[in-house]
Design a binder for these strands. Structure first.
Length: 157
DNA sequence: TATTACACCCTAT
DNA sequence: ATAGGGTGTAATA
């Protein structure tokens, strides 16, 4: 466990409150909670609050510049999470395709596991992964995945 | 150690 | 439609 993380919070009306932890190496995790009291991050050391506000206002935001602290994540999952950071806004890719691109064509399920433990939703855009036969899952609830894809203009059948 | 449970996907029945 | 095997990790015993 990385030590001495700093905790910040930002509420975006109609979407929720984002609590995020930052270490000296970067972002450790993002929690997306139901909206409670209004909270505003005035420090915003990584520029994340600004990006989140832009993102939820509908702008095409690239979170690739936000440093992530992967120290608590196994090398396999880390590789997968780093790979999917490059999926552009508004695009989707299949779990199986990611596995193929990483040279492990039978490991689609492992890719799903990496998404399941993704500590930084939105910043690491695991919502852009879909199953071959449908939408696939989302740890925070499938409605959140649909919301994000809709926000990015992805058409869902 | 061994077992189990996964945000999948392919190939058989 | 459904079952089972291939994958890697983490939680649990």
């Amino acid at each position: 466990m990385a030590r001495d993380p700093l905790v910040y919070a930002l509420t975006i009306p109609n979407y929720g409150t984002f609590i995020y932890e930052i270490s000296d190496k970067g972002l450790i995790r993002v929690n997306w909670e139901e909206e409670k009291d209004l909270r505003e991050d005035y420090e915003d050391p990584l520029g994340l609050s600004r990006l989140l506000k832009l993102y939820f206002s509908g702008e095409t935001v690239d979170f690739k510049g936000v440093p992530v602290d992967y120290r608590d994540i196994s090398i396999t999952y880390r590789e997968i999470l780093e790979f999917i950071r490059d999926i552009p806004y508004g695009n989707t890719i299949t779990y199986g395709e990611v596995a193929e691109r990483l040279g492990k064509p039978r490991s689609a399920r492992v890719v799903g596991n990496a998404m399941r433990i993704n500590p930084c939703p939105i910043v690491i855009p695991c919502h852009r992964l879909t199953a071959r036969n449908g939408l696939g899952g989302y740890s925070l609830g499938i409605d959140k995945k649909i919301l994000l894809l809709h926000l990015e203009g992805v058409n869902i059948c």
